[in-house]
Amino acid sequence: MDKPVNNRAWLLVAPVFLIVAFSAILPIMTVVNYSVQDTFGNNQFFWNGLGWFQELLDPSTELGGRFLDALWRNLLFSAIILAIEVPLGILVALSMPREGWKVAATLVIMALPLLIPWNVVGTIWQVFARGDIGLAGWAINALGIDYNYTGDPLAAWITIVVMDVWHWTSLVALLCYAGLKSIPDAYYQAARIDGASRWAIFTTIQLPKMKRVLLIAVLLRFMDSFMIYTEPFVLTGGGPGNATTFLSIDLVKIALGQFDLGKAAAMSLVYNLIVLALCWVFYTVMTHAGTERRQEENPA
């Protein structure tokens, strides 16, 4: 279905354009400005050209190595949580009750972690996982396993991953559940008549219907995990050492902690460009999937 061409539609879009431009372009200009300068305090700035960028992209320098480490850590984190949350979310969506009071109760409990402020999520897991006052930490230690997320990098990683799974799996599950709800009963009846196995129903009916929502879920989860800040900051503060210093945590440390504006700005721009590039890939895949679906539904 082709939409009529009408350039006056810009009038309707203008307010949104202006407010987002105000919030996005102006600050980015500040960042660009900082990124080519150096400062020794006192509000005195010196031209530094592309120096910060050269340093940032060269892993042999202190800044470059640090950036690469944080980037790598963050990609690993995103990969791990996607590998857990997507299959688990699908499993939960398939297991959810379909009718009765249980539906509402399940939905409310599942949505609850999504509406808890992110630092409170960190606090909840802090008081839950600490060895001295937390139920989980206490129980694990009582089992004879030495667990201390503030001292042991592996324990810190596991705690943050479990926290993220706790926090966000429901989003994936709710999206998939919405996709499943849109499948007409007739499909299942037909499958039953054909004697399709549970697995065949999943791969030929349920998974294709969930494809679009799954794309949205993967996009949102990937992007949000790639900019995670508050939860690990409250829980571990990026530690022990730098073990859980993800990109945003490192950036805030440089910008607001050390007040190294030039370095932080250069890092912001490169970080933002990576996000933009990844976003573009997802967007292309998504619009492509959208066109495909439209063609399937009304073949020209």
Binding site: V16, V20, S23, A24, L26, P27, I28, T30, V31, M223, F226, M227, Y229, L247, S248, I249, L251, V252, A255, L256, L261, A264, S268, Y271, N272, V275, L276, C279, W280, Y283
Partner: peptide
Amino acid sequence: FWLLSNRMAPPAVFALP
């Protein structure tokens, strides 16, 4: 796309500006 990309931009980048 530009609008959507702002949903994905890391807030840490914007904190100082």
